[in-house]
């Protein structure tokens, strides 16, 4: 059994996988392992890039591999090697078999990454921390489920190009100041700004846009799971909105009906009446 350490990103996996492939090692003879728990009997494989020509694989596979490399489970590394092995040993149409258990598993992982990415784009909240040389500066704190900081960064770069910002996470941080994205090591939440004077207005909006007469708490929670709430300035309103909704609805229903008021004198309304004829 050949043992390799979990790579830390896609490029590293690719280097290892190329080397394993050129040695002709089938997936069930390779053990992917956490570097902290190296087995006594393991035989460490040489991770140096081999000089043999890289195997041609479908573009769709590279994309899938890049995506699920961000998965926090580390289960993806051996799965990806198995898929690669099968692609290079005759099963070229592998990815068009959505009913293949390994393809299915990889697609599931890609879906999880996609969802995490989407939620990060949605739930990051920037807090304004200052202004310098006519550029506003913002900081956000976020805890993604998977290692998606680099995957998410282009979205924020495109959308918030005209401001300076940092997104801090426990895994890795990303910074933008107008020319290039920079990355730095993960930090503790205590370093992140918690307040922004606009949050109170946003909470007012959130409170007002809620319709107490149609409570659908489960629908809300399936789209905005509770694990995200702690970093959303509006989330601590939820409980109160739910508990008071019944009372507020009843109040609306108890109000007396209002009689119709006559139309005011207005030339535009008169013109509408003319049109009606």
């Amino acid at each position: 059994m050949h043992t390799v350490h979990f790579p830390s990103h896609f490029k590293q996996w690719r280097t290892i996988a190329r080397s394993l492939l050129s040695q002709g090692l089938p997936p069930d003879e390779v053990l992917w392992q956490d570097p902290q728990q190296t087995s006594l009997f393991a035989q460490q494989t040489d991770e140096a890039p081999c000089d043999r020509e890289a195997k041609a694989v479908p573009k769709a596979f590279l994309k899938l591999a890049q995506t699920i490399s961000c998965h926090r489970s580390n289960e993806q590394w051996s799965l990806l090697y198995s898929l690669l092995w099968r692609l290079c040993h005759g099963d070229k149409q592998l990815l068009s078999k959505p009913h293949d258990p390994q393809v299915r598993r990889a697609q599931q992982m890609a879906k999880q990454i996609g969802r995490d990415l989407h939620k990060m784009h949605a739930f990051v909240r920037f807090k304004k921390v200052g202004e310098a040389e006519q550029r506003e500066q913002f900081v956000a704190w976020f805890e993604p489920e998977h290692l998606i900081v680099r995957l998410s960064a282009p979205f924020f770069k495109n959308r918030f190009a005209s401001m300076d910002w940092s997104i801090l996470t426990p895994d890795e941080c990303v910074h933008w100041s107008g020319s290039e994205l920079h990355y730095s090591e993960g930090v503790d939440q205590s370093l992140a700004e918690k307040h922004d004077h606009l949050d109170e207005l946003w909470r007012t909006y959130y409170r007002s846009i809620f319709n107490p007469a149609r409570l659908k708490v489960r629908a809300m929670q399936s789209e905005m799971p509770q694990k995200y709430w702690k970093n959303l300035p509006e989330a601590d309103l939820i409980e109160e909105l739910i508990t008071k909704s019944k009372e507020r609805t009843q109040e609306m229903l108890n109000n007396p009906l209002s009689p119709v008021k006559p139309a005011p004198k207005n030339t535009y309304l008169e013109r509408l009446k003319e049109l009606e004829k």
Binding site: R214, I242, P264
Partner: peptide, 25 residues
Amino acid sequence: GICHSYTPDGRCISLLKILLTNVCL
């Protein structure tokens, strides 16, 4: 595209949805 929040009525908040005025003829 993106829903930036959800209210307990299950609806997505994606846009600042407001009236310029609620005065109406």
